[in-house]
Amino acid sequence: MDIDYFARKQAPDTSPSAIAVRILDELLRWRRRPDNRDDHASVRHHHLPRLQKAIECAAPLTFLLPAFPAKSPNPRKVLGNLPDTAERIALTFLNDLCQRIGEYHKPGARVLLCSDGHVFADTIRVADATVAQYQVQLREMAREIAPSSIEVVNLHDALPAEHADIGFEQARAYLMKHYGKSADDTRAQYMADEVGRAHYRAITRFMFEDGLTPDYNGSRNALQVDSRQRAIEVIRRSQAWGNLLDQAYPGTLRLSIHPQAPASPKFGIHLSDCVDTWLTPWHAVAVDVGGQFRLMKREDVERAGGRVVHVDGRPSHFVIEHARCQGESR
């Protein structure tokens, strides 16, 4: 009996192409997609070559994720201004994902988490000081949960070294001057197809919801008009931010919190195992439902009788008897 033959037959394929398939299979479990079509074959066609090329370098895979800007300014949605259990769940999920990828790709994987609150602060109407506090706490949480898997960077980290010490307003001005498009060009681009229009409507909805704070005294119609205008600016800033990140961190694999088409260079991904939610940690609260956490808007949890849990003297999450994994409608 040729024992070596059977050993060879049973040994897993460790070629870059085979490893890329296994890693993409893991990512596909958590993919955010724009609709319910079964388009995994198309995703594989576009993303496997990118993964395989990165694997062939025999270095740790670096995933770049622009996200975690700041907590929503609407207290009906969140517990406060600082990271809480909602962020902890997301960071733990990303760390676990990196660990699983490391089982296939021996050099390992890490996430470069680009906290972008200072990119959008004036547009989303969150003070830069509040964003800075959020980022400090987020970095501390990431160091605690995933010291080798997650690195938190921000706008100033990505700027050219000679501009790293400029103020927040100057940093945004530099970003848009050197990496941004005009509002008219951005609007024309996003209104040209249904995918772009859907993204614009989603951002408009977030702007509208965040603006419906308890102290808002204007009309809903006025807020809707304002939200549409700010949505274009958010998209414009997001594009410029992406262009800067491409320059600052070349060779990274791009993730996104937004659904992405199969041919997009970005891969849309959820931030927890609750894959039917459209909520993010900074637009929701974590809710313990029978030992499993879900994301919900604060007002929905309170309406259902949820109880706030404090950790180290700060509100952390809710506990509720019965709920389902709720997300925002499209």
Rank of each mutant, 00 (worst) to 15 (best):
D2N: 15
D2M: 15
F6K: 02
K9M: 05
S15Q: 05
I23F: 03
L27N: 11
D35A: 12
D35R: 08
N36Q: 10
H40F: 09
H46Y: 05
P49V: 11
C57K: 14
L64S: 08
L64G: 00
S72T: 04
N74G: 06
L79H: 00
G80Q: 11
L82V: 01
P83K: 07
P83W: 05
T85S: 09
A86G: 08
R88W: 05
F93Y: 07
L94H: 07
L97T: 14
L97K: 04
H105R: 03
A109M: 03
A109P: 09
V111P: 03
V111A: 04
V111S: 09
C114Q: 05
S115C: 09
D116E: 12
A121W: 12
T123I: 14
D128K: 07
A129Q: 15
A129C: 07
A132S: 13
A132R: 11
Q133R: 13
S148P: 02
E151L: 04
V153W: 06
V153T: 06
N154I: 05
N154V: 12
P160C: 03
H163Y: 13
E169R: 15
Q170W: 07
K181C: 11
D185V: 06
D193T: 09
A198F: 01
I203R: 07
D210P: 04
P214R: 05
I232D: 00
I235H: 06
R236Y: 02
R236N: 05
A240C: 08
Q247T: 14
H258Y: 15
P259I: 05
P262H: 09
H270G: 09
D273A: 03
V287H: 03
V287A: 04
D288P: 03
G290W: 00
E299H: 15
E302L: 10
A304G: 12
G306S: 11
V311Q: 13
G313I: 10
G313T: 05
G313W: 13
P315F: 11
I320G: 15
R330T: 11
R330K: 12
